[in-house]
Amino acid sequence: MDPINFVILASILFAIGAAAVLLRRNAIIAFMGVELMLNAANLALVAFSRIHGEIDGQIMAFFVLVVAAAEVVVGLAIIIAVFRARQTISLDEPAELKG
């Protein structure tokens, strides 16, 4: 089976992640949607690495993995800070901050 099918699979996963970010109000679930989008991009990178027979795509995916880990740490810390201040993790609550 052609490895390009994995890129199609990655597109579907990316769309699901984007839908989760757009639709869900729970900050943690929306954040998991972001993670899913990053992983979909990783899958596409690895699939392209297989298609071209070069290892660079896997290295790129590895870098994305590291950046995603750093992003998760900071993102969850922000969620905890918001929760401490407002006792909620709904994404709509901080919108009340605007004037």
Partner: peptide, 27 residues
């Protein structure tokens, strides 16, 4: 929902049209 579904459909249709020669020796 419409935006995300549109994005998915767009990506799948574009990627589905592509054909790249697969390398014989996988890295």
């Amino acid at each position: 929902l419409f935006t995300a579904a549109g994005l998915g459909a767009f990506l799948v249709s574009v990627v589905g049209r592509v054909s790249i020669a697969v390398a014989d020796t996988p890295a």
